[in-house]
Amino acid sequence: MTTSGSALARDLTAPVRGGRLAVTHWPGDGPPVVALHGITANSLAFAALADALPGVDLHAPDLRGRAGSAELPGPYGLGAHVDDTVALLDHLGLERAVLVGHSMGAFVAALAAARHPDRFPRVVLVDGGLGFPPPGGTDIDALLKAVIGPAMDRLSMTFASAEDYLAFFRAHPALGPHWGPHVAGYVTRDLTGRAPELRSSCVLDAVRADGADVLGDAETLAAVHQPGVRGELLWAERGLLDEPRALYDAGRVAAAALDPARMPARRIDGTNHYSVLFPPAVEEVAAAVRDALAGG
């Protein structure tokens, strides 16, 4: 068992294509929730959410190509994550679960609900899941670099010590001001290798394949608009580096013409792309999950 924040977590694995999926489980006697993390993240992104949802039975996998699931083979892509999520439910003996997805994980959640509405009747999409088709002829690699360039750059970096690695994240403009046990545990789970060449566990080919789906795959971009996908979209006020320009704004969300009865959307003020999952903003995410569990 590991401690992440105040919630006692345990590690388990589930059989999936090519091996076993690593999963962090915060046990509870309440209803099941599965949480899906972002493109260069890991399961401990949801440790604070687990704390905010006492009694909920929360499972968060390290998605294929990340952290404890880094050794799982390709092919990668969001469809592979959907298949892995269904396999996790089957392994747990669950007929259905609420899905929470952050960033890329929100796109996985929407796609899973579109393909399997009976298994995933409600979703909570956090700063992701709503995409905008790129103009014809767009270079997807260049677009991916523009959107998550700093996160991708980190994957090629090495660190002489764990202390240097933690110092790098303490200086991160979106994470540093919110530093605490939840953030430290989250970033540490991604660390692998041996000093003086410690590095991120994320597989670059997985990040590229998943990012291409988020930015340009027609089925992925259409998923949130499918009638079987029901839940709520929450977006952060600020961006990936705590900059004023966020991934979403009221105009872009309005232009997407989401059905407000099926997928209402709202901004969480005073947050950036990462801090939305950490205190105090995570309480609003938890409230949305409770609404989803209630079928509201």
Rank of each mutant, 00 (worst) to 15 (best):
A60H: 05
D62G: 09
R66K: 12
A67W: 09
A67K: 07
G68K: 08
S69T: 08
S69G: 06
S69F: 13
A70F: 07
L72Y: 13
P73V: 07
P75L: 14
P75W: 14
P75V: 08
G77M: 10
L78E: 05
L78Y: 03
L78M: 12
L78N: 01
L78A: 06
G79P: 04
A80F: 05
H81Q: 12
V82C: 03
D83M: 00
L88V: 12
L89C: 03
D90R: 15
H91R: 15
L94T: 06
L94C: 12
V98D: 02
L99T: 05
V100P: 05
G101D: 11
H102N: 09
M104A: 12
M104L: 15
M104Q: 15
G105W: 10
V108K: 02
A109K: 00
A109G: 09
A110Q: 11
A113V: 02
H116R: 10
P117S: 10
D118C: 01
D118A: 14
D118G: 07
P121D: 12
R122C: 08
V124E: 00
V124S: 03
V124N: 02
L125Q: 04
V126H: 12
V126P: 13
D127A: 04
D127K: 06
G129E: 06
L130M: 04
L130Q: 09
L130R: 01
